[in-house]
Design a protein around this nucleic acid. Structure first.
Lengths: 151, 151
DNA sequence: CTTAATTAGATTGTATACAATTTAATTTTA
DNA sequence: TAAAATTAAATTGTATACAATCTAATTAAG
């Protein structure tokens, strides 16, 4: 019965992967209204909270590396939702700033979570649990990173 | 306080998306030993359970469409883990069959879930809950699909 | 029985993802 | 302080993902 571990229905990562993709697919109609993909939306979520952020920090928040972020940020810049600028104190560093246009779409974006939420049949109890469990896992992943620089 | 809905930490999809990616990244070292990517591994999980499957059904099981599956299956065919064949009864249909070589790697693959599991700090209670909640959500997504053909 | 739908896969185009490498700037060290 | 190490982004190469379209085969309708 050791074969059980390889059954699709016993996997923990697969439902995570499938659920994530299916929900992101349901974001699409709402996000089209503000001309954003899901990944671009994640960047905007951060900027709607804090106006500006360094690229490296942004990558850490979103679990994305520069290979992913560079082209995404270029697209957001072309849409004039953000501006990119180098630090004067350290020219290696880049800062991303939200523009007025970027701030304006936030008003429309406010309706999105409710719209998408309607597509997901999830009671409050489960939603809370899901949220806590996933954030617990992510927290341990972040901790790994912190301690890996010790040796 | 209506802004709360747009805070990254209040999103339900983001931790799903981030967790899924981070865990898949942790599969990589193990999967390299059998020369598979995570998506290719998912296909093999299905075939280790049932030897052969029609492409359409495979796509439904894995929540992947032909645009994704076609190149993935081509790669698995090149590695000689699977073979592709057309139905004689209906030439539109394609069937995927696991090869002997594909069956053989299953033995090595058996160690993978435990290896990856070690990277994830998750107690049994939470793991069970996570599994149930996600599968409940996926079930409702499948139901949507069934009823959408009614109208 | 013939034309009009439907269906399964493949193809095309766009957008991620991420490992590995490169580049340029800044720090650290000998 | 000059060379070595480190750091932040960008670049390159490979592999998904998915919407939209296309193609060929099959079925349904009139």
């Amino acid at each position: 019965m050791e074969e059980e571990v390889l059954k699709l229905n016993n996997q923990i990562c697969f439902p995570l992967y499938a659920c994530s993709k299916e929900i992101i697919r349901r974001y699409k109609p709402s996000l089209e209204k503000i001309d954003l993909t899901y990944t671009q939306y994640l960047v905007m979520l951060v900027l709607w909270e804090q106006d500006e952020i360094n690229i490296k920090t942004l990558g850490e928040r979103l679990y994305l590396d520069s290979g992913t972020l560079t082209p995404v940020l270029k697209k957001l810049e072309r849409k004039e939702y953000i501006k990119k600028e180098k630090y004067k104190s350290d020219e290696r560093n880049c800062i991303i700033r939200i523009t007025e246009k970027g701030k304006k779409v936030k008003e429309i974006a406010k309706t999105i979570p409710l719209e998408v939420g309607k597509c997901i049949d999830l009671n409050i109890e489960d939603a809370k649990n899901l949220h806590r469990i996933l954030n617990d896992i992510l927290k341990t992943f972040n901790k790994e990173k912190d301690t890996s620089s010790i040796d």
